[in-house]
Computed example of a mutant assay.
Amino acid sequence: MNIAFSPCPNDTFVFHAWVHNLIKGAPALDVTYADINLTNQWAAEGRGPEVQKISYAALPWVVKDFSLIPCGGALGRGCGPLVLTADQTIDPASLSGKRVAVPSERSTAYLLFRLWAAKHVPGGVGEIIVMPFHKIMPAVRDRKIDAGLVIHEARFTYQNYGLSQLKDLGVWWEEDTKLPIPLGAIIAHRSLDVEEITKWVRHSVEYAWANPKVSREYVMQHAQELSLDVAQSHIDLYVNQYTGDLGTEGFAAVDALLGRAIKEGLVPEFDLKLLRR
Rank of each mutant, 00 (worst) to 15 (best):
T157F: 09
H222C: 11
N240P: 11
E225S: 15
G25N: 02
N21C: 06
Q159I: 15
I3K: 05
E153D: 15
V31Q: 03
S107I: 08
R143C: 12
G126F: 00
F113L: 07
A210W: 07
A58R: 00
I36Q: 13
V230Y: 05
K144T: 08
S215I: 08
I90Y: 15
I186E: 00
A117G: 05
Q224K: 14
G250T: 01
G72F: 01
P122N: 06
V150C: 01
W116S: 04
L275F: 03
G25F: 02
G162S: 08
A261G: 07
A17Y: 01
Y110V: 11
P92I: 07
P182L: 10
L111E: 02
C8Y: 14
V121C: 03
G148C: 01
I90K: 15
A4H: 05
F270Y: 07
P7N: 15
L257M: 09
A154S: 14
E249H: 09
S204W: 07
E264C: 03
R276L: 05
P49E: 01
R77Y: 07
I262D: 09
V205A: 05
F66G: 00
T177Q: 03
I36W: 12
R277L: 09
P138R: 00
C79S: 14
E127I: 12
W116A: 06
D236W: 06
C71I: 02
P49D: 00
L226K: 11
I136E: 08
W42H: 06
T177Y: 02
E249Y: 08
Y238E: 09
S96D: 08
I145V: 08
S94C: 13
G80M: 06
I186H: 00
G46S: 00
E217S: 15
F270S: 05
D87I: 10
T39H: 09
E195A: 07
T85S: 14
G97M: 02
Q224E: 15
Q88F: 11
L179Q: 02
Q232P: 13
R106A: 13
E175S: 11
V130F: 13
L166Y: 06
A57T: 00
I129S: 05
I36F: 13
D30S: 14
A118P: 04
E249V: 10
W172L: 02
V62M: 04
V254H: 00
E105L: 13
W116G: 07
R114I: 03
G244Q: 09
I262S: 05
V62G: 00
P182S: 09
V125K: 13
I262Y: 09
I3R: 03
P103H: 02
F5L: 06
A86V: 11
A261I: 09
F15E: 10
V62C: 03
F66S: 01
K53N: 11
G73P: 05
T12N: 11
Y207W: 09
H234M: 10
H234G: 12
N10V: 13
A188G: 04
R114G: 08
T12G: 05
W209I: 13
F66Q: 04
V171W: 13
I129K: 05
V219D: 10
L22D: 02
Y33A: 04
T12Q: 07
W18D: 05
A58V: 01
E127K: 14
Y207M: 08
D229S: 14
A86W: 06
L275M: 04
E249R: 10
S104W: 03
H203M: 15
L75S: 08
L274D: 02
P138T: 00
D146L: 10
H120Q: 04
L257A: 07
D168F: 03
I128E: 11
S55V: 03
E249N: 12
